[in-house]
Design a protein around this nucleic acid. Structure first.
Lengths: 210, 210
DNA sequence: GTCTATATATGGATAGAC
DNA sequence: GTCTATCCATATATAGAC
């Protein structure tokens, strides 16, 4: 096994996994390479060897999971406006549940008021997803399927619901009276959150809502 | 002036002001006492003198602005359920707009998955505000004023709207097509956000909404 | 109260042996 | 590819002069 050609790639991935967890839990500056090396069971020199530096490791953590998910749904001609929104809402919740550590990192990065190479990439990426969703809503309003609402803030609300739940799981678990923050990421809450997002879209966008 | 008795208190406040800004923009670990001392135009030793340590300064920054705001509204007997929610929504937006740096710090602190003395205090504090708002909604549902909704996630939605807008102002300013993130905190957006929160409450809680 | 100088620790990065 | 030992920068904190 030690002679396996892919052993390097595997170790690389293992380092990225541990790094993602640590950066999510403590933030970039608070994590030391020594701590990382210990938890990943590697030598400190390996970070330089595989990634060059701590900062490049951080970038690698972020970049490996950046994919566009809304484009496909938005341009599907066989779905109604309602179906598109509900599908995107579900996907959005799923993304936060299955990749919560990653989401924590990118939103914390965006929350820092520094304009860096990384934040620019992230903001750009989010903006693409954003445009897809707001395009659906705008089109729906034009065609009378939806009520006239504040489009930008409506999309931001969907993001906010999911993000607040997942990024402040400590607060959420107190509110929901669960024992630990990890309980918030069970299927029970995943379903509940999806229902609430759909309920939000329905009540908020229904033509005769107000 | 140099002999003024309050010069110490003034300097203390000045340090706290600068610290609040820096911690909000860069995070606790990323801010050094040297940088802080430079920006606050004080000597590095003054942080130890006034606060003891960097961590105690951080605590002082957080503790000086923790006040309960929802209790008064929730227990006001002269307001309808609708009025209470709208007032709380307005207050909530105002709190984020006038004290955005502070809000940034406390939500980032809560987002870190570390249980510390500080996060416990913060979560407890947020929970009090939370209980007041959810109490109003629960009571309104019982009395038939509101539709039956997911109470916890409805309150979380109000928090999420405001928080996402204010904590991710870099993203928001791209979406709103403004030049800088600071433009997001103008009266124009304050009004717009308040309208949207009220619109959310109305459409979401109206008895015959769905 | 304010400063300089310094003790002490820790972190990132790498040279060089294996 | 992996490790140890080490360099160097930077950080917090404080002792002690003024």
């Amino acid at each position: 096994m030690k002679s396996d050609k892919h052993i390097g790639a595997d170790k690389r991935e293992a380092i990225l996994d541990v790094a993602e967890n640590l950066f999510a839990d403590f933030g970039f500056e608070a994590v030391s390479i020594r701590q990382l090396a210990k938890e990943a069971d590697i030598n400190v020199a390996m970070v330089s060897y595989y990634f060059g530096s701590k900062e490049q490791l951080y970038k690698a953590v972020i970049e490996r999971k950046m994919i566009n998910t809304t484009g496909f749904v938005a341009s599907n001609p066989n779905m109604s406006h309602w179906e598109k929104l509900e599908t995107i809402g579900d996907n959005f919740v799923d993304a936060f549940f299955s990749r919560r550590k990653f989401q924590q990192i990118i939103f914390r990065e965006m929350a820092l008021n520094q304009r860096t190479e990384i934040t620019d990439i992230l903001v750009n990426h989010m903006q693409n997803n954003f445009r897809n969703v707001s395009g659906i809503i705008r089109d729906g309003i034009e065609k009378g399927v939806f009520r006239k609402v504040d489009v930008e803030l409506t999309v931001m609300t969907m993001i906010g619901i999911t993000k607040t739940f997942s990024n402040n799981s400590q607060l959420a678990c107190h509110i929901m009276k669960e024992a630990s923050a990890d309980d918030m990421f069970s299927d029970k809450y995943r379903r509940r959150l999806k229902l609430h997002v759909k309920d939000f879209f329905r009540s908020h966008l229904k033509p005769d809502a107000i």
